[in-house]
Amino acid sequence: MNQGQTERHSVSLTVNDRAVEAEVEPRLSLADFLRRHLDLVGTHLGCEQGACGACTVLVDGQSVRACLMLTVQADGTTVETVEGLATNGELHPVQEAFRTKQGLQCGFCTPGMLMRSLELIRDNRGITAEQAREGLASNMCRCTGYQYIVEAVVEAASNMDTEVNQ
């Protein structure tokens, strides 16, 4: 394919409960699509090679690196990003736990951490600190040393468990 040539493909997907249709270049990553085409700039790029996890979103319920997925591959999928967590300005229990536990400092890894944490909690409402620590090893944080993120995940799971039981 020659430089500058732009073949485009149409995609339709669901992002945070909203149906989205677009024409995109094959090379456009899901991360760049979210950020530049949908203005969902909460999904961050830290390394663009899948190492850091700042761009982690959920695709069909599973955490993925949005930098390592082409938008054309996301055609027909359901994508959840950090922007979909809060409802009517009220923080999601995972966000609230990060806030009260100070599970963030600069906030840059936070959206990816939140989405990965949400997945961990969905899979395991009784998640222990050890399990949370192991599960979070997929995402790099340079500020916190992870300790309060681990605490936040356990706290959020506990709170969400209570909410469900009520």
Binding site: N2, G4, Q5, T6, P26, R27, E48, V72
Partner: peptide, 11 residues
């Protein structure tokens, strides 16, 4: 660090 252009075909 953006990919170079390429064509795409889903099978």
């Amino acid at each position: 660090m953006k990919a170079p252009p390429f064509g795409y075909r889903r099978v």
